[in-house]
């Protein structure tokens, strides 16, 4: 098992290396110059040139790339051109905000999605099945920005029960420890603040959960339908086992593996692809962080931000692959 994990992590090196190379080239292909952006439209030629030299941007691109790789090998993610602080030092609050939101969203998506899928399969062709699958179909095809805006309009503006944007009440900021605000407020025992932070999570969280929830529900349903027809489910019933346990123990454990794959992929997508949702809900996450860096042509931030997201994505998928082995004794890693 350890051998397998080691090999998988070793295989990640060329993947991540190739990714840094592509990102490096693409962002330099975008027109625009960081020095120009930093100094503004009125800056003189000389000033821009001087800044380019200071930032190391006058070197050929391959020198810059090797400098960047050299830094990565020593654990240096580079320095923001704009703020002049190391990316490694400033990225965590953004990353934590995104992780908190993504985990919140995926938990909603998994709990509702899996159960809706199970019940749909259990009572196939019932009104619940039809209703759940119609909602799931709408869910996968709904533009998320539209859903987000509608929710803001209904729950914040019309009903006034939930905040529109942000992570916290700006007049009463959270004392930061881990940057996971739910955890921070819990550690401090500040339940009033916890509930405020939780309320801030609901709208972006449900908006973000919609597509994964629909995909998980549909996947669970089709996987369960197949398993429910299997011989061992009939055996479990012939023992006199309650239908609930037949479904949630014998069938679900067999049906869950393809669903896990989907959950892993969706979790990865949420971490990296939540830019739109983070923008609509003013969520200070990694998507916003990278998006703003693109505006400033802040090359190191873009490169390392994407690298971090990609790294998390592949690690989640490695985790999912290892979970298969825990669930199914026939899957062996060696």
């Amino acid at each position: 098992m350890l051998n397998y994990i080691g090999r998988r992590i070793f295989q990640l090196i060329p993947v991540l290396l190739g990714m840094t190379f592509i990102v490096f080239l693409i962002i330099r292909a975008i027109p625009g110059d960081p020095a120009q952006v930093i100094l503004g439209q009125q800056a003189s030629e000389e000033a821009i040139k001087a800044l380019r030299t200071t930032l190391g941007l006058d070197n050929p691109w391959y020198i810059q790339y090797f400098e960047y790789l050299k830094g990565l090998l020593t654990g240096d993610l580079g320095e923001s051109l704009r703020t002049r602080t190391p990316v490694a030092d400033e990225v965590w609050p953004y990353l934590a905000a995104t992780i908190e939101l993504s985990v919140f969203a995926i938990v909603i998506a998994v709990i509702i999605g899996i159960n809706a899928g199970i019940i749909s399969a259990w009572f196939q062709n019932s009104w619940f099945d039809y209703l759940a699958m119609i909602i799931a179909l709408i869910g996968v095809s709904m533009p998320i920005f539209w859903l987000g805006l509608m929710n803001q309009w209904i729950f914040s503006i019309e009903l006034g029960v939930l905040p529109t944007t942000g992570r916290e009440n700006v007049r009463d900021p959270v004392d930061v420890i881990t940057h996971f605000y739910l955890i921070d407020t819990l550690i401090q025992g500040n339940f009033a603040q916890f509930s405020i932070v939780f309320k801030h999570l609901i709208l972006p969280g449900t908006a973000l959960a919609t597509i994964p929830m629909a995909i998980i529900a549909r996947m669970t349903r089709s996987s369960m339908l197949e398993v429910m027809r299997s011989d061992y489910v009939r055996t479990a019933r012939s023992k006199g086992l309650k239908m609930f346990w037949v479904v949630y123990k014998h069938a679900l454990k067999n049906a869950i593996i393809p669903v896990l794959t989907i959950i892993g992929l969706q979790m990865g997508l949420l971490l990296g692809g939540a830019i739109l949702t983070e923008t609509i809900f003013g969520w200070p996450g990694i998507g916003r962080y990278i998006y703003e860096a693109i505006g400033f042509r802040d090359y190191p931030v873009i490169q390392s931000g994407i690298l971090i997201v990609a790294f998390i994505f592949v690690m989640i998928n490695l985790l999912v692959d290892m979970l298969y082995g825990l669930i199914d004794p026939r899957i062996k890693y060696d």
């Binding site: 055996t235 014998h250 199914d328 004794p329």
Partner: peptide
């Protein structure tokens, strides 16, 4: 071959 649950 298929009447026993493979995961238990």
């Amino acid at each position: 071959m298929t009447s026993l649950n493979p995961l238990f």
